[in-house]
Design a protein around this nucleic acid. Structure first.
Ligand code: FES
Ligand code: FES
Lengths: 155, 155
DNA sequence: ACAGAAAAAGATATTTTTATCTTTAATAGG
DNA sequence: CCTATTAAAGATAAAAATATCTTTTTCTGT
C-alpha cells in the first residue's frame, strides 16, 4: 500500500513528535538508528518533508530535525501526500482503472470500508493527537531494543 | 498491497473461470485485450500460473488458456502465492520488522481486521465459488466497454 | 574569524518491477 | 507432411523505487 519511503517518513514524523522539540533537535543519524531505516535515504525524505514544512530543521552544531507546534497540527495524510501522493488510495485493489460502487470488482466491498477507516484515521487526527495517543496506549514506532523488554523484566 | 503482476494474474484467472473451459480456450491476446493489461507481460504471468498448475493451456491452433475442474478448486490465495508470495500479508503497515499484537504500531488494530477479512476471502473460497459469486452479483473484472452499458440501455 | 557539525543539494548506483522482443516447441487442420 | 497458430522459454529493455556518495551551505561555539 504505502512505499517504504512513506513508511519511513510517517514513522519519522511521529518519532519526532514524541521525542523532539525546538530545544531538542535530533539528527538523521539518530533517527535512522532508532527507526532502523537506511540513513542517507531517510535524509532525503526528511529533506522533502522539510521543504513541505511538515518538519522543521536547523543546520550546524546542535542542529537537527524537530517538530514545532505548527508542524504538529499537520496530519499523517499530509505526510503521505508529500511522499507518495494520494493515488494509491483511489485505485482499485484488483487493478481496475476506476474504483467505484457502481462497477465494483469482486473485493471492492471488503476493501472500501478499510480504506475509509484508515483514511479518516490519517486525515482527521493531527500529528499531536496521534503522538499523544501513541504515548497513552503504548504503541510502538520501532522494534529496536524492544527485545530487552521481553520476559516481563521492567526497566 | 498487491503488485500489478498479481492483480493481472488474479483477474486473468477469474476471467478464465468465467469465460473458458476445455472446449473454449482463450489466447493471451484476447485476455489482455479484455482485461486491458500489457499482453507480453500477461503472457509471462500465465506461463508462471501454468507451471504452478493454476491454469491449463495447450499450444497450437485453437489452443490457449483455460481452467479445468481441478484448476477451479484452487483459490485466489494460490495465485497470490504463485506471483507475489505471501510476505506482504505478514508485514507491518508502517514498516516495523514484525507485525504482532504485542508490539502494535499505531495503525495495527485498524489494519489487522482488514487483513484477516481479505485473507479469509482469498484463502477459503475456491475459484469456482468466486466465479459463481461474480456472476450472481454482477461484479466486474474489467471496465472495458462498460460505458456501453451506461444510460440504462440494455444490450 | 575559525573550526567543526549538521542539513541541503545534487549526482550516481543498485535493485526491483514492469514490459517487450526473439526464438523455440507443440499442435491442429488441411 | 506442411503450414499456420499458439504457448513456452529466454534474452533484453525501460522505468520506478531504493539507496548511497560527494559537495555545498548554514549555523554554533569558541
Ligand atoms: S473496484 Fe476494486 S476495489 Fe473498488
Ligand atoms: S504492527 Fe504495524 S500493522 Fe501490525
Amino acid at each position: 500500500m504505502l512505499s517504504n519511503a512513506c513508511k519511513y517518513a510517517i514513522r519519522s514524523v511521529l518519532y519526532l513528535a514524541i521525542h523532539s522539540d525546538a530545544t531538542a533537535k535530533i539528527g538523521v543519524k539518530t533517527i535512522a538508528q532508532e527507526l532502523e531505516t537506511p540513513q542517507p535515504f531517510l535524509a532525503k525524505l526528511l529533506q522533502q518533508l522539510t521543504r513541505d514544512t511538515l518538519v522543521s530543521s536547523t543546520k550546524g552544531p546542535n542542529g537537527g530535525f524537530y517538530l514545532d507546534d505548527n508542524n504538529k497540527q499537520n496530519t499523517v495524510w499530509d505526510v503521505i501526500k508529500s511522499i507518495d501522493g494520494t493515488k494509491k488510495f483511489d485505485t482499485c485493489f484488483l487493478g481496475l482503472s476506476k474504483c467505484n460502487n457502481n462497477n465494483p470488482c469482486p473485493v471492492h466491498f471488503i476493501v472500501v470500508p478499510f480504506k475509509e477507516s484508515i483514511l479518516s484515521n490519517f486525515r482527521d487526527k493531527t500529528i499531536l493527537e496521534y503522538s499523544d495517543e501513541i504515548k497513552n496506549t503504548q504503541q510502538v514506532l520501532s522494534l529496536k531494543d524492544l527485545n530487552l523488554l521481553d520476559g516481563a523484566a521492567p526497566k
